[in-house]
Structure formats: C-alpha cells, structure tokens
Measured scan of single mutants.
Amino acid sequence: HDTTVHINGLRIEVHGASEEILKWIEEAARRGVEAEEIKRWVEEALK
C-alpha cells in the first residue's frame, strides 16, 4: 500500500508497506514511540 500515517501530528509517507507494517506503526504510536523514531524504522524496513 501507499499510505500516509499520521502520528502525533507528524505525517509519515509509507510506500509499499504491508498491513503488518501499518499495524506495527499504529501499535508503536499507541505505546508513545517518538514519531521520528518510527519513521526511521519504517524507512529501514522498506529498504
């Protein structure tokens, strides 16, 4: 999927993410993980 995830006011563009990654992002956000940190993880995961 190409999608934009909104976390604590930060937009994260996610290209080619699976449902699993999207669920993981939402879970991390709920746990209060910094949005910048999530963004870094997602970029690494999608390389």
Rank of each mutant, 00 (worst) to 15 (best):
K47A: 11
E36R: 08
W24A: 04
L22Q: 03
V42H: 00
G32K: 02
V5C: 09
N8A: 09
E37H: 07
V33I: 10
I21T: 03
R31V: 07
T4P: 07
I21A: 01
E44Y: 14
I38G: 00
L22Y: 06
R30H: 08
T4K: 06
A29D: 05
H15K: 12
I25M: 07
E20S: 10
E37V: 12
R40N: 06
G9T: 03
I7L: 05
R30Y: 12
G9D: 06
E26Q: 14
L46N: 04
E13T: 09
E13F: 10
A29F: 15
E26P: 00
W24E: 01
W24Y: 08
N8H: 06
I7D: 03
I12W: 08
I25G: 00
R31D: 09
I21R: 00
H15M: 11
E13K: 08
H6W: 10
G9K: 03
G16T: 05
I25P: 00
R31Q: 10
E36Q: 09
R11S: 14
I21M: 09
A28H: 02
L10G: 05
K39Y: 11
K47M: 12
V5A: 03
T3C: 05
K47C: 07
K47S: 10
G32M: 04
D2K: 14
G32L: 04
G32D: 02
E34G: 13
E19I: 13
S18Q: 03
D2L: 15
H6K: 09
V33F: 09
I21L: 10
I12P: 01
R40Y: 05
T3D: 11
E44I: 11
L22A: 02
V33N: 01
S18M: 05
E26S: 11
E44S: 12
K23D: 05
E13Y: 11
R40E: 04
T3H: 14
D2Y: 14
H15C: 06
G16W: 07
V33R: 02
I7S: 01
I21G: 00
V42F: 04
A17C: 02
G16Q: 05
W24T: 01
T4G: 09
S18T: 14
I12K: 01
A29V: 15
E26H: 14
T4S: 13
R30Q: 12
I38E: 00
E27P: 00
A45Q: 13
K39Q: 11
E13S: 11
V33D: 05
A28V: 03
I38Y: 02
R30L: 14
K23G: 05
R40T: 06
I25S: 00
E34N: 13
L10T: 11
I38V: 04
G32V: 01
R11E: 11
E44D: 09
H1M: 13
W41M: 07
I21P: 00
L46A: 03
E20N: 08
L46P: 00
E34Q: 12
A29Y: 15
S18L: 06
L10W: 04
E19G: 08
H15D: 10
A29R: 13
K23S: 09
E20D: 10
G9H: 04
E34V: 10
V33Y: 09
A29S: 09
H6P: 03
A29K: 10
L46F: 07
I38K: 00
E27S: 07
T4D: 07
E36H: 11
R31P: 00
L10C: 06
A17E: 02
E26V: 15
H6G: 04
E34K: 12
K39V: 10
R11P: 09
V33S: 02
G16N: 09
A35D: 04
E43V: 12
I38P: 00
E36M: 11
V42N: 00
A29Q: 12
R31Y: 10
E36A: 12
R30F: 12
E34P: 15
L10Y: 07
S18E: 03
A35I: 12
L22I: 10
E43Y: 15
R31M: 13
E34W: 09
K23Y: 07
R11D: 11
L22F: 08
V42I: 08
H15R: 10
